[in-house]
């Protein structure tokens, strides 16, 4: 398998549950790196804590497994100190948007060049199924046994409002789109956010009577649509997939170079 050049094979099979969507994200993230023909030593993958964060252990890049929610803060230090490196920052939904919510919006605001991937399974998996800021109103979780009264963030709208210059969304059913979007995000100069809906058959779908991995991926197929499609106009409930934002904006490291120039005048 070509992607095997990019993994630490000795740690496989990985720790994720059978049918976990995170493996599909890993699979197609590696394909994006391969198709871009990137040098493994040019990539730093920074992750936080949780099921999602384990992804960094499996890839043969420079890998930094950090603290819950802090991946983007560590990544900011790596990127700013060595701008030639390519930063990939996969995060879970609780990781990126609850404990790491502040770092998320500020990294977006700075428009620092890195690729943030929100592996959204709508639950805290590693600790056993508590609701996350993306679970949504009316869902069930071990900490919402009577139904969740917390409303969810819209990751795309949040990232856009915070200033991210590339914002996209897809699902694990749409594997080719994962590869395509990650490729475009890596090539984009600035802060890129990709939300990938990813099934947690062990906790989220089981607790919410949505079946297992297959039913969840069928759900992704049937409840999502291309941005601006006819289907969306007919059924506004559908979740849109694709690139929502792609704009040229001054990148943070480039801007700091100007500060250095001004200071040395």
């Amino acid at each position: 398998m070509p992607v095997k050049d990019y993994i630490r094979e000795r740690f496989f099979p990985h720790i994720w549950c059978s049918g976990c969507g995170h493996g599909i994200i890993l699979n197609n993230m590696l394909r994006a790196v391969e198709e871009l023909d990137m040098d493994k030593s040019d990539i730093v993958m920074v992750s936080g804590i949780g099921c999602s964060a384990r992804i960094s252990g499996y890839v043969d890049f420079h890998t930094l497994h950090t603290l819950h929610g802090r991946a983007l803060a560590f990544a900011t230090g790596v990127k700013m100190s060595q701008p030639k490196l390519k930063l990939m920052v996969p995060m879970g939904d609780g990781d990126a948007l609850a404990i790491g919510g502040n770092h998320f919006i500020h990294a977006a605001r700075r428009n620092i060049d890195m690729t943030a991937i929100v592996m959204n399974n709508r639950i805290y998996g590693m600790t056993g199924g508590q609701f996350s800021p993306l679970s949504g109103y009316g869902t069930l979780a071990t900490t919402a046994p009577y139904s969740n009264i917390d409303h969810n963030f819209d990751v795309v709208a949040l990232a856009q409002a915070a200033g991210a210059s590339f914002v996209a969304r897809t699902t694990t059913f749409h594997a080719r789109q994962i590869t395509d979007l990650i490729k475009q995000a890596i090539e984009h100069r600035g802060f890129s956010v990709i939300e990938i809906l990813s099934q947690c058959p062990t906790y989220f779908s089981r607790k919410n009577n949505m079946g297992g991995q297959i039913e969840m991926m069928e759900w992704y197929k049937n409840n999502t649509t291309r941005i601006g499609s006819k289907a969306k106009q007919e059924n506004p409930q559908l979740i849109e997939r694709g690139i929502f934002v792609q704009r040229d904006m001054p990148e943070y490291c480039d801007e700091y170079d100007k500060v250095i120039e001004a200071a040395q005048k």
Binding site: V46, L64, T66, L67, R70, A73, F74, A75, T76, G77, V78, K79, M80, S81, Q82, N102, H103, H106, Y256, V259, I260, A262, A263, Q264
Partner: peptide, 23 residues
């Protein structure tokens, strides 16, 4: 910046220490 180094004002002290570890 006068010596070509990098300065970051972060969003809090949590991210400040994380950023220096990364650097």
């Amino acid at each position: 910046p006068q010596i070509g180094g990098k300065f970051l004002q972060m969003e809090d002290e949590i991210s400040s220490i994380c950023a220096i570890i990364g650097a």
